[in-house]
Amino acid sequence: MSIKFKVLPKKNPQDITAPEKFYATSVANGETTLESLAEMIAYQCTLTDTDCYAVLRSLERNMLMELSQGRIVKLGHVGTFQVSISAAGQNFEEDVTATDIKKSRILFRPAKKLKQMLGTLSYQKAN
Rank of each mutant, 00 (worst) to 15 (best):
S2F: 13
S2M: 12
S2R: 11
I3S: 06
I3N: 11
F5V: 02
F5Q: 03
F5K: 01
V7D: 02
L8D: 07
P9V: 04
K10F: 05
K11R: 05
N12T: 10
N12E: 07
Q14G: 12
Q14E: 15
I16S: 10
T17S: 12
T17Q: 09
T17E: 11
K21M: 11
Y23W: 03
A24N: 01
A24S: 07
T25F: 08
S26E: 09
V27M: 05
A28E: 10
N29T: 08
T32I: 14
T33E: 03
L34S: 13
E35Y: 08
A38Y: 00
E39A: 15
T48R: 05
T50C: 15
Y53R: 13
V55W: 01
V55Q: 02
R57W: 11
L59F: 13
L59T: 04
L64T: 08
E66R: 10
E66C: 12
R71A: 06
I72N: 11
V73R: 02
V73K: 04
L75C: 13
H77M: 11
T80M: 09
Q82I: 05
Q82G: 06
I85G: 01
I85F: 12
I85A: 07
A87D: 00
A88Q: 13
Q90H: 06
N91V: 03
F92P: 02
F92I: 08
F92E: 13
E93C: 14
V96F: 15
V96E: 03
V96Y: 09
T99C: 07
D100G: 06
K102D: 12
I106R: 00
L107G: 09
F108M: 02
L114W: 00
L114S: 00
K115W: 03
K115L: 09
Q116H: 04
G119T: 04
G119H: 07
Y123E: 05
Y123Q: 03
Q124L: 14
Q124Y: 11
A126V: 13
A126L: 15
A126F: 14
